[in-house]
Deep mutational scan, measured.
Amino acid sequence: MDVFMKGLSKAKEGVVAAAEKTKQGVAEAAGKTKEGVLYVGSKTKEGVVHGVATVAEKTKEQVTNVGGAVVTGVTAVAQKTVEGAGSIAAATGFVKKDQLGKNEEGAPQEGILEDMPVDPDNEAYEMPSEEGYQDYEPEA
C-alpha cells in the first residue's frame, strides 16, 4: 500500500510541476504579447503594419512553449490582441483601416495563427491545408 501511495504522490508532483510550467509559459506569452502591443503603439504610420505582424510573430513563438489545451486559448487571445492593436492603430490615425491585415508588401496577414497546427491532446499534428499553395516548377 505504501508503494501505491508513494507512486500516487510522485504522479501528483509531476502534474503540479507540469501545471506550473504551463502557467509560466502562458505568463511569458502574455508578456511578449504586451511587449508587441507597446511596440505597435510606438510606431509611426509606416511601421504600424509591420508592428502588428511582430506582435503576432512574438506571440506565436511563445505559444510553442505552452502545451496542451492552453495553446488553443493563448492563440485565440493573441489573435484578438493583434486585431485590437490594429483597431487602436486605425482609431489613433497611425494607419488607414484599409491597410490593416496586410503586410508591407500588401499581402493579407489573416491566418497567421489560424494555420498553425495545434492539437490540445498532444496526440497528432496535421499540416495546414494546401489550398493556398501553388506547385513550383523550376525553369529549365
Results as ranks from 00 to 15, higher is better:
Glu61Cys: 10
Ala78Tyr: 14
Gly84Asp: 10
Glu123Arg: 11
Lys80Ala: 07
Gln109Asp: 11
Ala78Pro: 00
Val55Ala: 11
Val48His: 00
Lys6Ala: 09
Thr92Cys: 04
Lys6Ser: 05
Ala27Phe: 13
Gln62Gly: 00
Tyr39Leu: 03
Gly101Thr: 06
Ala69His: 15
Glu110Gly: 04
Ala30His: 00
Asp98Ala: 12
Thr75Arg: 07
Gln99Asp: 11
Val63Thr: 05
Lys45Asp: 00
Phe94Glu: 07
Leu8Trp: 15
Ile112Glu: 10
Lys23Val: 09
Glu61Ala: 09
Lys6Cys: 06
Lys97Tyr: 14
Lys23Met: 15
Pro117Asn: 11
Ser87Glu: 01
Ala19Asn: 01
Val70Asp: 05
Ser42Glu: 12
Lys10Glu: 02
Ala76His: 12
Thr22Asn: 00
Val3Asn: 10
Met5Asn: 04
Lys96Thr: 04
Val82Gly: 04
Thr59Cys: 14
Val48Thr: 02
Asp115Val: 12
Gln24Thr: 07
Ala91Ile: 11
Gly51Ala: 04
Tyr39Cys: 07
Glu46Met: 05
Lys58Pro: 01
Glu46Ala: 10
Asp98Pro: 09
Pro108Asp: 09
Ser129Ile: 03
Val52Ala: 10
Ala11Ile: 15
Glu105Asn: 13
Thr64Pro: 07
Val118Ala: 03
Thr75Gly: 09
Gln99Trp: 12
Val48Ala: 04
Asn122Glu: 02
Gly67Cys: 06
Ser87Arg: 09
Val77Lys: 04
Asp98Asn: 12
Thr92Pro: 04
Lys102Thr: 10
Gln79Ile: 07
Ala56Phe: 12
Val77Ile: 03
Val49Glu: 06
Glu130Lys: 05
Ser129Arg: 07
Thr44His: 03
Val15Ser: 00
Ile112Met: 11
Lys58Thr: 13
Tyr133Met: 15
Glu126Phe: 08
Asp2Cys: 10
Gly68Tyr: 09
Glu137Ile: 13
Glu110Trp: 14
His50Lys: 05
Gly93Cys: 05
Thr22Leu: 10
Asp2Gly: 01
Gly67Ser: 12
Val16Pro: 00
Ala85Glu: 06
Tyr125His: 12
Gly41Met: 09
Ala91Met: 10
Glu35Arg: 08
Gly51Thr: 14
Pro120Ser: 10
Pro138Val: 14
Tyr136Thr: 02
Val48Arg: 02
Glu104Gly: 08
Glu83Ile: 05
Thr75Glu: 09
Lys6Gly: 01
Thr33Asn: 03
Glu126Asp: 13
Ala17Arg: 15
Gly7Tyr: 09
Gly36Glu: 05
Thr81Met: 11
Ala27Glu: 01
Glu131Gly: 02
Ser9Cys: 05
Thr33Val: 13
Lys21His: 08
Glu110Phe: 07
Glu20Asn: 09
Lys21Tyr: 13
Ala124Val: 14
Glu137His: 04
Glu104Phe: 13
Met127Arg: 14
Glu123Thr: 12
Val70Ser: 00
Met127Glu: 13
Glu35Ala: 07
Glu83Leu: 08
Lys23Asn: 04
Lys97Gly: 11
Asp119Thr: 10
Thr81Glu: 03
Lys43Gly: 02
Ala91Phe: 15
Val66Pro: 01
Ile88Gly: 03
Thr92Gln: 12
Asn103Arg: 13
Gly93Glu: 07
Gly73Ile: 13
Ile112Pro: 07
Val16Arg: 08
Gly51Gln: 02
Pro138Asn: 14
Met5Glu: 00
Lys32Gln: 08
